[in-house]
Simulated scan of single mutants.
Amino acid sequence: MIAFRDAEVADAAALARLGAESFTETFGHLYDPADLAAFLENHRATSWAAQLGDPAFAVRLGEAEGRAVAYAKLGPPSLPFTPNGPAAELRQFYILRPWQGSGAAQALMDWVLSTARARGAEELYLSVFVDNHRARRFYARYGFVEVGSYDFMVGTHRDEDHIMRLAL
Rank of each mutant, 00 (worst) to 15 (best):
R97S: 14
W111C: 06
R117M: 02
L18H: 08
R67D: 12
L96R: 15
L74Q: 08
A10W: 02
Y150P: 00
R5E: 03
L61K: 12
G62Y: 03
D35C: 10
G148Q: 10
T46D: 15
A13R: 14
A7P: 02
R158H: 04
S114N: 10
L166V: 07
M109H: 07
R44H: 13
L15S: 06
E89K: 07
D110M: 03
V147C: 15
T24A: 13
G53S: 13
A34M: 06
F152Y: 13
L90S: 06
S102E: 03
Q100A: 01
A104I: 07
P83F: 08
D32C: 13
H29P: 00
P55Q: 10
E8T: 14
L36I: 09
Y139D: 04
L61N: 05
L96M: 12
L168H: 08
A72C: 07
A70Q: 03
F57C: 09
L108W: 01
A118L: 08
F27M: 11
V112A: 05
P83S: 10
R5C: 07
D35F: 05
A68Y: 03
Y31D: 13
T115Y: 01
L30F: 12
D35K: 04
Q51K: 15
R91H: 14
G53K: 10
L15A: 08
A107H: 11
F129P: 00
G62L: 04
D32G: 05
T24E: 11
A88L: 14
E41T: 14
R97V: 11
G75I: 11
D32K: 07
P33V: 06
V130M: 05
R119N: 09
P33I: 07
H29M: 02
R119T: 04
T156M: 08
D32N: 14
N42P: 00
L36F: 07
W99N: 09
H133W: 01
E89H: 07
D110G: 11
V145W: 00
E21V: 07
R137N: 12
R141P: 00
P86H: 10
A49C: 08
M1F: 02
L124V: 14
T46L: 10
R44E: 14
F152Q: 09
R134L: 12
G66A: 12
W111Q: 06
Y94A: 05
P80W: 09
A12K: 11
M153G: 00
S127C: 13
L79M: 06
